[in-house]
């Protein structure tokens, strides 16, 4: 029915539409897109600008437009809790990016060997990703419990000097968080990497085989460079998730032990905004979070979309 009408169509495209007022053209489309426009402009753009502007005020319980320059930032960067938060996030972030990407890639390579039961393996590796960080955090808190968890079990076996209690030691608490974070996130990275590996032309493999290049070397020298885009996208996704790291810490350690050994910036923001009623500090801290995201995002957006027009 449609094929003949289709051919006659071009006459009616937007360019030829009759000179109605530009405004009212596509009026239902514009109305339908209103929530998107409002979200983009009012919440995302407006909200961000509002917070940045008010981070220069001394708002306490309520936002007040009483500008004090960089006071909040000076206070922020001389607050030891904030400094610890930043340090923790950097450490956790770097470790978590290295491990998820390396392990995710290795798992993807193993999965790409035309194995049987691939779906079963993938289902098992990915299911933690469907869980809430709260659930993940609480399970691992229980497994790492010093009395009844891994440490307790190994001691019961007779190795009484065995020590494995990462969550109650300020020096190792971040490793405890990492164990849980990696458990949840690696399967997802594996899926992204696997999709990347599947996207590589079979001819590349044939060519390297003809040249007699060993498989491992093909991966390192040929495949990884070809998957550059996949790696970068993965890193951006992982990094933007890490900066938001909050639920997992709340569930596993509440920022402790020792008060603030595992504090993260998102926690600092929440506490100052909604608990300590020091809005200005919260705004300044969240602005710093935004800044760190932009440092990651802008170079990526430039690499990814630079040159060609996006959309």
């Amino acid at each position: 029915m449609s094929s003949t009408t289709t051919e006659a169509e071009p006459v009616r495209t937007a360019t030829y539409a009759k000179p109605r007022a530009r405004w009212t053209r596509n009026i239902s489309a514009k109305i339908a897109a209103l929530p998107m426009v409002a979200t983009a402009l009012v919440v995302f753009l407006g909200g961000t600008i509002w917070t940045v502007v008010y981070s220069f005020t001394n708002s306490k319980l309520l936002p007040r437009a009483n500008f004090v320059g960089f006071d909040q930032y000076e206070r922020l960067w001389s607050n030891s809790r904030w400094l610890i938060s930043i340090e923790n996030l950097l450490f956790y972030g770097v470790m978590s990016m290295i491990f998820t990407v390396v392990m995710g890639f290795i798992l993807a390579v193993l999965m790409d060997q035309k194995i049987r039961y691939e779906d079963t393996f993938r289902t098992i590796m990915l299911y933690p990703f469907a869980l809430s960080f709260i659930v993940t955090g609480l399970v691992w808190q229980w497994i790492l419990n010093p009395d009844f968890g891994i440490q307790g079990v190994v001691r019961d076996w007779g190795w009484t000097s065995f020590n494995f209690d990462p969550l109650n030691n300020p020096d190792t608490v971040l490793y405890g968080l990492l164990i849980a974070g990696l458990w949840q996130g690696t399967g997802f990275v594996m899926c992204l990497m696997l999709a990347g590996l599947r996207g590589i032309d079979e001819d590349i493999w044939k060519a390297t085989r003809v040249d007699g290049i060993p498989t491992w070397k093909t991966y390192v020298v040929v495949i990884i460079p070809m998957m550059r885009a996949v790696f970068i996208t993965t890193l951006v996704i992982v990094a933007s998730g890490i900066i938001r790291l909050y639920d997992l810490v709340v569930a596993m350690t509440s920022g402790g032990p020792g008060g603030n050994a595992s504090q993260v910036p998102a926690m600092y923001v929440y506490d100052y905004m909604f608990q300590a009623q020091n809005l200005g500090q919260g705004f300044a801290a969240s602005t710093m979070m935004l800044l760190s995201v932009l440092i990651v995002l802008i170079p990526w957006a430039y690499l990814e979309f630079g040159g060609k027009k996006h959309g």
């Binding site: 983009a40 995302f44 917070t51 940045v52 935004l290």
Partner: peptide
């Protein structure tokens, strides 16, 4: 608007909470 929206998804929620 769409580009703003996509960028918005990377921005930390904390900055839009208040």
């Amino acid at each position: 608007f769409f580009t703003i929206l996509i960028f918005g998804s990377f921005i930390p929620y904390q900055i839009m909470l208040y």
